[in-house]
Design a protein around this nucleic acid. Structure first.
Length: 205
DNA sequence: CGAATGATACCCT
DNA sequence: GGGTATCATTCGG
């Protein structure tokens, strides 16, 4: 099927991600989540697509991470079971979704912010950029804090689905966005990953 | 460039 | 307990 020049799939990939996928270094998980599908099921049907941009956030040691203040009511999911969602509200109006991921032997918390995805499923008629930003994709998929703590590794109304890996040659990395408040040494870490040629990656206006 | 918009963390009493 | 600065963003002017 072709909509507005873009290939639109009828079905998402059928394979879930194992819990172990998320039980390793957060930066590795951020890189490996590129290409993985985020899929949403609502009364309106299925929507989602492959992730094209991510950012890694560490535990209390990471000056850019929400976990930098330690475990609080809001950040509790970041310290909990990997493979679950950490959804927070920012600027009073935008929801952002992370996947909890960290190597428990090296860090006590961590998560990967999903910054953009390719709107391949559902969202028919929508333009290519409706999911080109962390708050835009949650709005497009109907994700709110109601999904905070939600398990993303199995059948439900929101999950991650494995797909073909993305070649190293097609991936770029650079500093995380919007973390100027973090101390020196944390601002410039290249912990943001994106698919270089994707038209769905977020960009500064 | 700056407003929108409200939960949160952290300070003080 | 209460006041307030801050914010992993987005959009219009």
């Amino acid at each position: 099927m072709l909509v507005a020049g873009y290939a639109v799939e009828a079905e998402p990939p059928s394979q879930f991600l194992a819990r172990d996928f998320f039980a390793r270094d957060t930066v590795d998980v951020a890189r490996e989540l590129l290409g993985v599908w985020l899929v949403r099921s609502t009364p309106d049907g299925l929507s989602g697509g492959p992730i094209v941009e991510t950012e890694a956030y560490g535990g209390p040691e990471d000056g850019a991470s929400h976990a930098r203040a330690g475990r609080t009511p809001r950040t509790t999911p970041m310290f909990g079971e990997v493979g679950r969602a950490y959804v927070y509200l920012v600027y009073g109006m935008h929801s952002c979704i992370n996947v909890v991921a960290y190597d428990a032997a090296r860090a006590g918390a961590g998560a990967v912010l999903i910054r953009a995805l390719d709107p391949r499923l559902g969202l028919d008629g929508a333009d290519a950029r409706v999911c080109s930003g962390p708050a835009k994709l949650t709005r497009a998929l109907g994700i709110t804090r109601a999904q905070d703590g939600h398990d993303l590794t199995g059948a439900s109304d929101l999950w991650l689905a494995a797909a073909d890996g993305v070649a190293e040659a097609d991936v770029s990395s650079g500093p995380r966005i919007g973390v100027a408040y973090a101390g020196p040494g944390w601002v410039d870490r290249p912990w943001r990953f994106w698919i270089t040629a994707s038209p769905s990656v977020s960009r500064a206006r």
